[in-house]
Nucleic acid binder design. Sequence first.
DNA 1: TGAATGATCACG
DNA 2: GTGATCATTCAT
Length: 195
Amino acid sequence: MSRLPRSFYARPAAEVAPDLLGKILARNLNGTVLRGRVVEAEAYLGESDPGSHAFRGPTPRTQVMFGPPGYVYVYFTYGAHYCMNVVTNTDGTAGAVLLRALEPLEGIDVMEQNRGGRPYVDLCNGPGKLCQALGITREENGADLEGNAIWMEDDGVEPEEIATSTRVGLSAGKSMPLRFYIPGSSCVSRGKPSG
DNA sequence: TGAATGATCACG
DNA sequence: GTGATCATTCAT
């Protein structure tokens, strides 16, 4: 079980996103370690990508996307939900990968509590859901993935298959084939590509 | 199928 | 300051 090095993230988001499938997101929540395997992720590019928050250049909210790789970008949306990204590319170049779904592995009882007792497959099968299950809020924005609150591990397990589709939830014309998921997993989100 | 719900950003 | 928009979720 090895932790992903910062160099893993220092690549274009479109390369990092599929490589994150099968990896493990770990979260230390009040001393309890929660773990889940990434089964769905989307790449968001820099100022050339109209679907990315970085499209219009850096703002107070998005500045972490323009910083060095291996940090967490969390934003709040729809008045109710948090979404978690991993910052990619080198310092000064924007890029991030949105974690959209996990297969819960460890600390499942805590995730169930955080999610109001919902069934296993509904714990982490959406970007807002996995943040709620893992207790991720704007407090974690800017957190270092080389630190002790949130990090990523590689246990050597490779996905059997990787599928690609357009991204979910973007207005027409902004979607691109930058969503990657493991089609065999029951925990992939039910969001539909709007391509 | 649509309501909820508030932060964010571009504009003036 | 104002208004449009939103990388969603859940109940109807």
